Simulated assay, not measured.
Amino acid sequence: MRAPAAPSAAVSRQSHAYRQGLVLGLTMAEVMLLLVFCLLIATAVTLKRGQDARDVLEQRLRQAELAREADKRTSELLEKNSQLREALEARAASTDPAKVDEFWRKLVESAAVVDALAEKGLSRENLLAAADDIVQAERLKREGVDLSQAARNASLVAQIGKAFSGTAPSEEKIVEAIGKGLAAREASSGHRWPPIIKLSEADGYFFESGRAELGVNFTKTLRTSVADSLLKTARDYDVDVIEVVGHTDEQPLGSRSSNLDKGLQTALSNSSGVSALRPADNAGLGLARAIAVVGVLSEDKRLAGYKILPLSGAQLIKTDETLARGDTPGDVKERRRIEIRLRKSAASSNQP
């Protein structure tokens, strides 16, 4: 009689049989459940993709239906209104329904643009008149011009025009006005005065002893370099008065009668009359010489708008602008001079 198997051997056979029903540690039932779950996920993904594709197709279909409905209404409208259709065909230059419909859509889009512009303040009546301005604005924008800055510049130009009594000033006038404004601002803080032009015998500008007639070279200098300098200085400093001051040294003229009271007006109106003047003292001599210079400068048409005034410093003012005290009575060439000063008129502030 065979002896029964040991208990340990029976347990070992049962464990081996159990392991034969496992896959990756799972039973066959668990594996089947996992496969079914994966199939459900794949099915759900497929259904979702199909739903998305169907939604896209439905949206396109609705759009197509809307377009077809719009085309249908357009066609019905055109069929009912023969005059409108003929006008559209004439403008579209075709009887092809597709081209007519395309032209109609463009017409509708144009109407939408006109409505949008009207909402921004551009009326339908002014749209056609402003077409050139709109095109110009678009061209400037493409060229990189800031339209807002351009509008501010236009406002500035309008204000400048008002400052020039409503006239449109040239660029040169604007630059000149700005320069004057800057000069005036500097003058208000630093008191800038126009330079004094000095013409003395020591520099080669001669008068005959005791007389006021100008030499040839002296006259030529007054008409060229001196007049040019006066014009530039007057514009740079915005002045309108030119003062010509005649100075003498302290040598007395001697005893003689004067005819200045009778001859000054003639000499002022006719420079040739200077030769007839006979001053009796240095005060009169300085004035006569100033009148001679004024006569030459007044002939220059460029200085016609300025006030040119003759004055006399006689022998009282030294070259350093201090008063003479009779301490240099001799022949001093530097003292025999013409000084030309410029200033603004107290009664007028406008440049001629």
Rank of each mutant, 00 (worst) to 15 (best):
R192L: 15
K220N: 12
R256Y: 06
D203N: 14
K220M: 08
V241A: 05
N217F: 09
E201I: 02
K220F: 08
S272M: 10
I197Q: 13
E213A: 05
V239P: 06
S229Q: 10
A283E: 11
T266D: 14
E250V: 03
V241W: 01
I291V: 15
L231C: 01
S272Q: 14
S269H: 11
L253I: 06
A292E: 06
S255F: 08
E208R: 14
Q251K: 11
L285A: 00
S269E: 10
T219F: 06
A212Y: 00
L260N: 07
K198N: 15
A280T: 10
L264N: 06
A290Q: 10
A292G: 14
E299Q: 14
D228M: 06
S225A: 08
L277V: 12
V226T: 12
V294H: 04
G273Y: 08
T248E: 09
D228N: 13
S225G: 00
R223W: 05
N217G: 15
S225L: 03
V239M: 10
T221W: 07
L264P: 04
S272H: 11
E250K: 02
V245N: 10
D236V: 11
V296Q: 03
L199V: 07
T224P: 02
L231T: 07
E208Q: 12
G295Y: 02
G263C: 15
E250Y: 04
I196L: 14
T221I: 09
N259C: 00
G284K: 13
L230W: 03
A202P: 01
G273Q: 08
Y237M: 00
G246K: 05
S200D: 15
V216C: 04
E243Q: 10
S258G: 10
A283S: 14
L231K: 09
G295R: 01
D300Q: 12
T224Q: 15
V226G: 02
A288L: 07
N282M: 03
F218G: 07
R289P: 08
N282G: 05
W193D: 09
A288F: 04
L287G: 01
K220Q: 13
A280W: 07
R223F: 03
L230C: 02
D300R: 12
H247D: 11
L231P: 03
S275V: 06
A234F: 01
R302F: 00
L285E: 03
N259R: 03
N217A: 15
I196T: 14
R289Y: 08
L264Y: 07
V241M: 01
D228S: 11
Y237L: 00
A212E: 05
S269N: 14
D281I: 05
V294Y: 04
N259W: 03
L199C: 09
L222N: 06
V274F: 06
T266K: 15
V296S: 00
D261I: 11
L277C: 09
A276G: 09
V239G: 10
L253S: 08
A288R: 01
S271F: 08
F207N: 02
S209H: 09
V245P: 04
K198S: 15
L268I: 11
R235D: 09
E213P: 01
R192H: 14
G273P: 05
L231S: 14
T233I: 12
F206E: 13
S225E: 09
D236R: 11
L231I: 07
A290I: 06
Y205K: 02
A202T: 08
E208I: 00
S298Q: 10
P194Q: 01
Q265T: 10
L277H: 13
G215I: 00
Y237H: 12
A290H: 12
